[in-house]
Simulated scan of single mutants.
Amino acid sequence: MRPLLPILSACALLAACGNEDVQPEPVRPVLSTVVEPQVQAQLGRFAGNIQARFESTLGFRVSGRIARRWLDVGAQVKPGDTLATLDPTDQQNQLRAAEGDLARVQAQWINAQADARRQQQLYDRGVGAQAQLDIAQTNLKTTGASLEQARSAVSQARDQLGYSTLRTDHAAVITAWQAEAGQTVSAGQAVVTLARPDVKEAVIDLPIALAEQLRHDLTFTVASQLDPSINTTATLRELEPQADATTRTRRARLTLASTPDAFHLGTAISVTLTSAVTPRSELPRSALLERDGKTQVWVVDPQGKTVATRDVTLAERGPDSIILSSGVQPGERVVTAGVNSLKPGQKVIFDEDAR
């Protein structure tokens, strides 16, 4: 019986070695993310500001020296409010000269009327000559024409005096002054810029390459830079046809779907440009597994807590993310780290469960 003891010892040793080789695979903690469909593609984010859709630049209709500027930038004005005045000395002198000419011509017209009346009476009694009557009537008509001319000159001089006061004809906000008190300006020279605050729009500058590809179905999201929760959507109203020579950009003006109260004139905004695309998925680049000429990802089975490879179609590859056009479904969980150290069917623990 003694020879059996070494044999039994050897069998026990072999059995122990076999048990060590059949140890279960360890459960591996992984980082993962849930696939979400992407139906909008972001084309860029640009800085801009809120401006009035309607702006007007006013100037005096006569030349002169600005005597006073009545309001400052940011002031709200009503129709008829005075913005600035010129030194009216020249216009007042012109008005007085025109009124003097009018008085002189009026006296001449009265004399011409009296002379024409006397010549008519003499002619009716048969003691006056036809030639004298004709001369008196012609002089009356000439003086009457001079009278009308003198009255027009006085009216024009009064208008010139009124033009020395710059007024607004609509409600607006002063956004800029181009001239100061004491400065001499010419007729029509820009003096002040007014903006109508009732209609506002977003203004941004776009790169030429992007501006040339804009389509009508693009959506603009306009948000305040100070508080992104204040936002609205917008559509393209106008795209300047010529690019700026310095920045090589084209200015775009957007019509706001709604105007939040916080969107004051000059408010800094952030405009995000998106476009409708075929549904696709965006994942971190670390989720991509490339081997044997295939592009794959590890998909987690939520029931068995195991992983399996899935062939996917790569639409775009970025420095930090990838865009998949097919291969995964919304709601599936994909491993995003350590993809090269996993095995098919390996049990994993989600990053959420690990926490």
Rank of each mutant, 00 (worst) to 15 (best):
Q38H: 08
A129P: 01
V312S: 08
K305M: 08
N19D: 11
R251C: 04
L288N: 11
T221V: 12
R310P: 03
I230C: 00
Q91P: 07
R117K: 12
F54Y: 04
D351L: 12
R215A: 10
W70N: 11
Q91T: 12
L218V: 10
R69H: 03
D90R: 09
V154G: 09
A262M: 07
P228I: 14
V192P: 06
Q132W: 09
D198V: 00
T82E: 15
G18T: 04
Q51F: 07
I7W: 15
Q160I: 02
K141R: 14
T306V: 01
Q119L: 10
V35H: 08
L71F: 05
A84V: 02
P37W: 06
P24R: 00
Q137H: 14
L218F: 13
A202Q: 10
L8G: 13
Q213S: 11
V154R: 08
T193Q: 14
A187D: 10
F46K: 06
Q121D: 09
Q121E: 08
D101A: 13
A268E: 10
L83C: 07
T138H: 13
G338C: 00
L147H: 11
D81R: 06
N139T: 13
V127Q: 05
T336M: 05
E332S: 15
G44I: 02
R96H: 11
K200A: 08
S9C: 13
S281M: 12
K200T: 01
S229W: 07
R65W: 04
R61A: 15
L8F: 14
A116M: 07
E290H: 13
P197S: 05
L5E: 15
G327K: 04
I174D: 05
A129G: 12
V173T: 14
T278M: 11
V191H: 03
V192W: 07
A337T: 07
V348A: 00
T142R: 14
I135N: 12
A131F: 06
L236N: 03
G100C: 00
P88G: 02
T138P: 15
R167G: 07
L147F: 11
S63W: 10
R291H: 14
A97M: 03
S164A: 11
L236Q: 03
G318I: 04
L147W: 14
R2G: 09
Q51C: 11
L239H: 07
P241D: 06
A223K: 07
E352W: 15
T235K: 10
S281G: 03
Q23G: 11
V154D: 06
A176I: 03
D124Y: 05
A234P: 03
L314P: 04
R151H: 05
A243S: 08
D320W: 12
E148P: 01
